[in-house]
Amino acid sequence: MGHIIASLRERSDLFRLLFFAFLAFAVVFDFFAVRHHAHFWGDHIIGFWAFVGLVGCLGMIVIFKGLAKVWLMKGEDFYGN
């Protein structure tokens, strides 16, 4: 099993291509998805959740990592262990 994963890993360029193709597909698919149960305004915008996903992810990394850096992160022996 290990060498299968290793050989897949060698084809990382292919996976990168497939990944971007999937992103394009996800946005295109949203044009055709029927909105039966729209809960709020965001549900009517094409690609809204793609935006939430990307901005949310980047925002979280920046905010939480930033908080850790300036405040939360301490040495392993902070409590005297």
Binding site: F22, F48, W49, A50, V52, L54, L58
Partner: peptide, 11 residues
């Protein structure tokens, strides 16, 4: 698809 895909992109 969008949420997971674009979170992946963020990573």
């Amino acid at each position: 698809f969008q949420i997971l895909g674009f979170t992946g992109l963020g990573f």
